[in-house]
Computed example of a mutant assay.
Amino acid sequence: MKHLITTLGPYRKDQLGMILPHEHVFVDLRTPDQPGYAQAEAADVVALMAPQIFAIQKQGITALVECTTGGVGRRADLDKAVSVATGLPIVVPTGNYREPWIPDWVGKASGAELEDWMVGELTGQIEDSGVMAAWIKVSAGDDGITPLEERILRAAARAGMQTNAVIGSHTIRGRVVMDQLDIIEDEGYRAERFISIHTQAEPDFELHKAVAARGAWIEYDHVGREPDDEVCALILKALDAGLGPQLLLSHDLGWFDPALPGGGTPRPYTHLVDVMLPMLRAAGVSEETIVRLTQDNPFEAFAR
């Protein structure tokens, strides 16, 4: 039986409703060598982020996927603190971001060492947080995957094969996504266990279709960040093209930023339910499709 691994333990599909597949609770976009990187007090993070979580719980959101990975301030212990304080399950990744957000130890590690690290977090816990990683988050440069990014991705593919964890990648260009899928399949893993994060950033819609044709998930995670009519039109275009069974929708918003006083001002995760879903319904999208996009697809993508 499939379960979604969260900060509050594993959940079956029948225990969950709507899931936001790409958000952030805590992020530090400074490079890992900067003073104060990823440092914050749990009480401060909870105070800032709990109201954002309560707001989506009132909408019927039952889980949130944290997309902050290694290199950009991942703190599973802080995710768990927010989760426990609010009662919302949060889904946390292993893995690492692209260059230059790669810690020295990751850059020096062999592929086998990176694989063992990811498998350890996917089957045990992330550091001393008590949180098991649910999935693998990586990234690739806009101009192409670097040798170090490829080493991380190959390790991720092998870790994914051992655990059935999905691999999501922050990749802006569709042609680079296609290269990543080649690498994953070369390692023996399946394109079906890959999420093309930020698919909407690729202007060529034919590449959206090509990535989906390989079997991968595509993710439009700009709800509430770009004009609503443009976002809605793109979603409708994807549905008309038959991509609904592989489409994920989210905001890519939040979050507590330790580089800013008081953690900054978070942007809410409420726009999908408040604005975009009503727009899709008004455009004729069925409730069955809404359920697929907001419940079925996120669970199937991230559960293992």
Rank of each mutant, 00 (worst) to 15 (best):
V65T: 01
C67H: 15
C67N: 15
T68D: 14
T69K: 04
G70Q: 01
G71T: 02
G71A: 07
V72K: 08
V72M: 14
V72C: 09
R74Y: 03
R74G: 04
A76E: 07
D77N: 02
D77V: 13
L78N: 07
L78T: 11
L78W: 06
D79L: 05
D79E: 08
K80A: 11
V84H: 11
T86N: 10
G87F: 06
P89Y: 06
I90S: 00
V91T: 04
V91W: 11
V92G: 05
V92M: 12
P93G: 05
G95D: 06
E99A: 14
W101P: 07
W101R: 09
W101N: 13
P103L: 00
V106F: 08
G107N: 14
K108W: 09
A109C: 12
S110C: 07
G111I: 00
E115Q: 03
D116A: 15
W117Y: 14
V119E: 01
V119A: 00
E121T: 03
E121V: 05
L122V: 06
L122A: 10
Q125I: 14
D128K: 10
G130K: 02
M132L: 14
A133L: 10
A133H: 09
A134Q: 04
A134V: 10
K137H: 04
K137V: 10
V138M: 15
D142S: 08
G144N: 05
I145Q: 04
P147F: 07
E150A: 08
R151F: 14
L153S: 03
R154V: 04
A155H: 06
A155C: 09
A156C: 06
A156F: 00
A157K: 00
A157G: 00
A157P: 02
R158T: 15
R158Y: 12
A159N: 05
G160I: 01
T163E: 00
N164R: 12
V166S: 03
I167F: 06
I167R: 02
S169I: 06
H170F: 06
T171L: 11
I172E: 14
I172Q: 11
I172S: 07
R173F: 07
G174E: 00
V176R: 04
V177Q: 09
D179Y: 14
D179W: 01
D179S: 12
Q180A: 09
L181M: 02
D182Y: 13
I183E: 01
I183G: 01
I184Y: 04
I184K: 00
E185R: 07
E185Q: 12
E187M: 06
E187W: 00
E187V: 03
E187T: 02
A191R: 03
E192W: 10
I195D: 01
S196E: 08
